[in-house]
Amino acid sequence: MNLGEIIFLITVVATLGGAAMAVLSGSIVYALLGLVAAMFGIAGLYIFLNSPFLSMMQILIYVGAVSVLIAFAIMLIGPLYRKPKEWTTVGKFVAALGVALVSLFTFVRFVMETFGDTLPQGVPLAESPSFKITTKEIGRLFFNDLVLPFELISLLVVVAILGAIMLALFSRGNK
């Protein structure tokens, strides 16, 4: 096991532990910290997938924007610590676990049936063709083949900004 594999294992463990912490921790601030840890771990996994541009975008958008937005919402909403009963009843926990496990087993079965024949020997490796999708290729793709989804994303972001502004204005008018 060389250094790259050790770093890969650390990244995977950070992702899994962050995701578990985001769901299971009692405080909402710790849940946000777990989410940030999971996002950093996924950024590292993107680097291992030979796509550093995706990794940088992950850190910029998720860690930089979305988690700061959630942190501001937590600060604005205020004293959540007066109701520390984030651990609710046992029945709800069992129900959540059941729903999630059903979906998990379904998709594990799906993954094993789709890619299971290549699991033991691990054939589809980086061996096959060399992977050379650079940032330039992604940019060309966005401006040649994926022009319509790109424009639709920009439209969606504009509509989301307008919607957020309208929500804020309406709440101020009602008071």
Binding site: A19, A22, V23, A31, E86, T88, K92, A96, L97
Partner: peptide
């Protein structure tokens, strides 16, 4: 991650969670 997300949507009480 999908497993944790589905479990959290059902399990969390607050909307931010």
């Amino acid at each position: 991650l999908l497993f944790c997300g589905i479990a959290g949507v059902v399990y969390r009480r607050t909307l931010i969670g």
